[in-house]
Design a protein around this nucleic acid. Structure first.
Lengths: 150, 150
DNA sequence: TATATTTGTATCGCGAACGATATAAATAAT
DNA sequence: ATTATTTATATCGTTCGCGATACAAATATA
């Protein structure tokens, strides 16, 4: 065979593995506060802008609502946020952080730094990260556009 | 807040999203043959070297056996591979491709090329890919070493 | 040889992801 | 105003991913 099926030639496998391993690096820091990594992503979205409908959160995270809805329900059960029907549009569910949800921001203050330093290495430095971000953003936009077209 | 929690500054979120979107790009090509992306990864491992114990497959994919075992059982149920107790070590389960499993390689011949071209864009070209691979490999090795140390 | 430890795999439970589908509310078309 | 379509969210079923745990076979130790 000509190497097209060699694992070592696969971009997706690298992304998949790197994603899993960084998520694992977050795990001890987040589980300490009863959070998962996707829940932490939801928090970052709501810390940026509170009181958003489910759809806006899903779009920001590029996830489907059938992934986000159960995620939000679990966070609601933990007392991190509330979900209330929209007033001007009764189909929407507006998601708002509770005091506990806001408070987590302070408690997690050191997490980005901790994970960031764990990832630093030969080729991942403050100088090279922007280039990496650019490539990943290109991949994401490329595939996202293609998905919307089809 | 100082931007440390901004989604746009997060490496992990980009890896997580890029990984999901590429996996989605594989989906129509693989589901046509009754496969998922992780199952495709297992196939690539076994096409490279048939007749491996569960542990070797898991290590190659950097997954735990409690992820791989059910995955292999589903593939066995589909007639893609067989699992038989090792002869020299009765604890091992040796995984072997069936004729169907081997045959899938021919049927999926065009998949790498199709996904590859879907990802090609401004900053992802045959010239830039090696650099991206290097950075991702560094991240993976860095986190993998750290994990084994702790 | 008997006992302890390590190793390879599997089971269990939970939280994602996501395709397919359903439902109600809002909007557009007739 | 009725009917049709779109939109926002939710439900269901299947497959991962993984921490915790179990268990038997192999190896090391006493």
């Amino acid at each position: 065979m000509d190497g097209r099926f060699k694992l070592d030639n696969q971009l997706c496998f690298r992304l998949y593995t790197a994603s899993r391993l960084i998520t694992q690096a977050y795990h001890p820091l987040l589980s300490e506060h009863g959070l998962t990594y996707p829940q932490y992503l939801v928090l970052m979205v709501l810390w940026e802008k509170d009181a958003q409908p489910v759809n806006d959160i899903a779009k920001r995270l590029m996830l489907e609502t059938n992934t986000v809805t159960p995620l939000l329900k679990r966070m609601e059960a933990e007392g991190i946020l509330t979900r209330v029907k929209g007033e001007k549009d009764a189909r929407q569910m507006i998601v708002r952080l509770t005091r506990k949800g806001h408070g987590l921001q302070t408690k997690l203050m050191n997490v980005p730094e901790a994970v960031g330093s764990a990832v630093l290495c030969e080729s991942i430095t403050p100088e090279t990260v922007p280039g990496l971000f650019g490539m990943l953003d290109d991949i994401i936009n490329q595939l996202n556009d293609k998905h919307k077209t089809n």
